[in-house]
Write a protein that binds this DNA or RNA. Structure first.
Lengths: 207, 207
DNA sequence: GATAAACTGTACACACTTGTTCGAGTTAGA
DNA sequence: TCTAACTCGAACAAGTGTGTACAGTTTATC
């Protein structure tokens, strides 16, 4: 699902606020917004300090065009982080978390791995421009899903319950990010990563 | 062991290169160099983008004084990272890695945990200004120690050997950094961290 | 006590980034 | 076809950070 930014302020070269226009946004404008968001996601995932100029170039648009769609770098980063979290939540929503907790955890990890690898350092970029509560709130949906499954596994005696569940969520995230970093360093391949993440995480969390 | 920077270029206010002076560095200069290195370590461990100004203030010296001892921000960061790695290697050298591999791993993790928590994002700061090979080389000593122990545990059948040993080294590092981040977020305390790290890592790596 | 080493605040130059303005050209959609 | 939406390069302003120069002050060591 593609979300486009709500432009609530007038842009500098006369483009009106959404509320004031007689018709929907032009097709090339819609395409450019999507190109900017995709480029920002890609670039910020590996370099959270990337400039507006670098993002605009990666998107194939001018800086003024980017500013025509996003009020500031912070606005763009917020939009990109929100989209990533929404896509994560949406992808996790399709994962079957019923049945055996350990098998469900394996399925969850498979889905989550791809998202973590794709979004990488985006969280760092977000942390630099967004307040901590906003970042925390953004993460709550996906984290709650994971926590719910871990609670079920602990209650069933399949996952260890001698450590805080929030710590277990952190471990899961740490292993996922570590796998992404290892792929970037060339130590493992992206194909090998899911199985390694699954085996390692299940080993760490199993009763 | 304190290492001081080798000043191979003349500084702006006439201080000569080490080779050219008739006597050792003054005591207050030695003290300032140590203050700068300690401040840089502390500041960069939590904010890898910290400016020269922030580091100088934290060290209680002027910016020009800092530039008197270090040619550039990159030079300072390199020195700080090298010191951290040397201190890590030195601390690990005192850990008894003989006997039962799992127990030895527990002792290694206890020592490593403190270092990881202390140095935190220093690695990020280093990665931003140093070439990848240099960062890799810097890590080789400590990583080799860990790898050696893991190989021994694998050969003894105590640690799982169905995954690459370099991946296991990455997992160990990921869990350590994850624990440090969890302490910073207030999810666990620094006192709880060692036991959690030990239990989780042994779970993840045990046969 | 003398003197060189060391420190410091101020100022400057340069580079980069963010955000804005302008005027001209292009494009999409009615 | 017409026109408003949209794009864009150039230029500008402001801010930040890095690194250098200067001149005066302070400190340590012989």
């Amino acid at each position: 699902m593609v979300t486009t930014p709500a432009q609530t302020t007038e842009t500098t070269h006369g483009a009106t606020a959404d509320g004031g226009r007689d018709r929907a946004k032009r097709a090339d404008a819609v395409r450019n917004v999507e190109a900017i968001l995709a480029a920002a996601t890609r670039v910020l995932a590996t370099d959270p300090d990337a400039s507006i100029n670098e993002i605009a170039k990666a998107a194939g648009v001018g800086r003024v065009t980017l500013y025509g769609h996003f009020d500031s770098r912070a606005t763009l980063v917020r939009e990109v982080v929100d989209r990533a979290i929404a896509q994560t939540d949406e992808a996790l929503a399709t994962v079957d978390l019923d049945g055996d907790p350990r098998e469900a955890l394996g399925r969850l990890l498979e889905a989550t791995w791809h998202l973590t690898h794709r979004f990488g350092a985006l969280v760092v970029a977000g942390s630099q421009v967004l307040p901590p509560e906003e970042m925390s709130r953004a993460h709550e949906g996906p984290a709650q899903r994971v926590r719910g499954l871990l609670e079920r596994g602990r209650a069933a005696g399949e996952l260890r319950d001698d450590m805080p569940v929030d710590w277990q969520v952190s471990v899961l995230q740490a292993i996922l990010h570590g796998a992404s970093a290892a792929v970037h360093r060339g130590e493992i391949t992206a194909d090998e990563a899911p199985a390694l993440v699954r085996a390692t995480t299940l080993g760490a969390l199993s009763a």
